[in-house]
Amino acid sequence: MALAVRDVSISFGGVVAVKGMGLDISEGEIVGLIGPNGAGKTTFINCIAGTYQPSSGTVAWQGRELRGLAPHAVIRQGVARTFQNVASLHDLTVLDIVKLGAGARGGASPRDAARAFVRGEAELEAELHEAVLGPLRLSPIAAQPIQTLSYGLRKAVDLARALASRPRLLLLDEPVAGLTAQEGRQMAGVIREVRDRTRCAVLMVEHKMDVVMSTCDRIAVMAAGAKIFEGTGAEVQADPEVRRVYLGEP
């Protein structure tokens, strides 16, 4: 398994947010993580990304333990994430933010770093336009400050920033929330295209079931901090416990 999370728990004061959670993801697989609000989905992603340090459990990524690493160190292991609420770096342009993503990947040898320095910013910008901004249709607005963009475009920029770090594991926190139906379909298409092209592993938290069903190979369901079910889209939809907890059916 590329990602093997075992028995992860975390509490805030007396509130147990995630309890004994485990999940495996293979290379090239898109796994959906669904559940009612407050189920602990974003907290679980935060535990993988280093934003929170779980109080117990292990987060093994390609055989290496991520638990205990700071967010910037996790990114250097090839793990990138997007945010439910897009990071507010108001003064920066779209291109600046994508460059930050490219800069965060690190791991360049001194020789590569020296070569990149000599090549200069222009070549990096051209590369980012071709590999990230173009496919996400962000090239025409690359010079615009992020604060002038709509919520949907900010989401796309956040994904572009994560993709610029050339991730092997992509953690997406509600990537289509707040987008129009058309924008949501485009975003889901980009996510599948990225997976097909790079064979990266993807963990996607999302509430829009049509997007989850059409995008994910497998779906895990969380409730009250724990995993209650895992299976294909059809299996999830058919499970009575999931229907009761998530869909509110009697």
Binding site: T51, A70, P71, H72, I75, R76, A80, F83, A87, S88, L89, I97, L100, G101, A104, R161, S165
Partner: peptide
């Protein structure tokens, strides 16, 4: 906080 979140030390 946002800078930390996008991987800046």
């Amino acid at each position: 906080r946002a800078a930390l979140a996008v991987g800046i030390h």
